Computed example of a mutant assay.
Amino acid sequence: MRSVVLTKGVPDFSEGAVSFNEEGHLERGKTPTVMNPNDEFALQAALQTRVRHGGHVSVMSMGPPGYKEILGEAMESVYADDLYLLSDRACAAADTWATAITLSAGLETYQEEVGDIDLVFAGFKTADGETGHTGPQTAWAMDWPMVTHALALDIEPDEDRLRAKRLVEGDVDEIETVESRLPSFVVADPEFEPSYRKAAHRLEHKRLRRETRARAEEYEDHVTVWDHQALNLDPDSIGLDGSPTIVSSVDPIPKAPSEREATMVDPADEDGMTTVVEELQPFAAGGE
């Protein structure tokens, strides 16, 4: 069983980490990059598959060289064997379509150089795009079946088949059971929860975690970088040049309203600083 997990780095939107300019636009250069939160569910789905059925797990991402750190983080999450970064200036500013074309080329190159893939896992959507297009578009480019909003997953390797429970949202949410042939794409829902009911599975989980810790410390030794030439891609079909999306405008992100009143005190104001100390003294002494 060979699986590949797609992941991406996104700006850290947590309070105090994200940086905006005066117009309210995100400043990516001044904002830390973290692994896309929704990708964690894809990683957990891949890990469950490996624990239950064994095999090989790889993680793949498209982005700048700095994404190696994101791949290293993913290696620790899914206990991956190796990491693949599709990185080239020609890939910059890609929309979801151009990203999917690049990722599908990466998966095809992987199959040629590493081995046949049984499953590709992807997150529901990215925190910086919110479109949810990349996983489905990559599946389309590969001409593989796809299961979206997966809540639970079971594999029948001997039958080259997967069975999944997926969430169907509507006026009343429903859960349906679907089957798909392998190879296949799986887009994990944020409500996906891995299950390790058997003692053998829990022991295997612990073994993999212990084995991966040493590998993850030297994660850069396990990263393979492919540029557009290695992927046999025409620069005109990827990146900004290969992106059909036209952004008509960008609205600034509104600043969150203050949830409590604040009193500004100049450090040079002795009376003001005395008041601050008097206010804080009860807390320093363990009072309430």
Rank of each mutant, 00 (worst) to 15 (best):
Y79R: 09
V223T: 14
D82R: 10
Y196H: 06
A230N: 00
E76M: 12
T138R: 07
F283Q: 03
S195H: 13
P235W: 14
R215W: 07
E22C: 00
V147A: 15
R215V: 10
P65H: 11
H205M: 10
A214R: 14
H149L: 01
I238Y: 07
E193L: 10
P32L: 10
W97G: 01
P65T: 04
G170P: 10
P32V: 14
A92K: 00
S104C: 11
E218G: 06
P235A: 11
D39P: 07
A139T: 05
D271M: 08
E191D: 14
H25L: 15
A92Y: 09
E23K: 05
E22K: 01
H205G: 02
G123F: 05
N232Y: 09
A268T: 14
G106A: 03
M273S: 05
A17G: 03
L85R: 09
K206P: 00
R28Y: 12
S237P: 00
H53T: 06
D221Y: 05
I101H: 06
V18M: 09
T134R: 07
A46G: 11
S19I: 13
F124K: 12
T7Q: 01
H149D: 13
L6C: 10
T99V: 09
R161V: 00
D236S: 09
E259M: 07
H53G: 02
D269P: 15
I117R: 07
K30N: 15
D154M: 02
T263F: 12
E193F: 09
D128N: 09
K30A: 15
V265A: 14
D12A: 04
V276Q: 12
T109D: 03
D81Q: 06
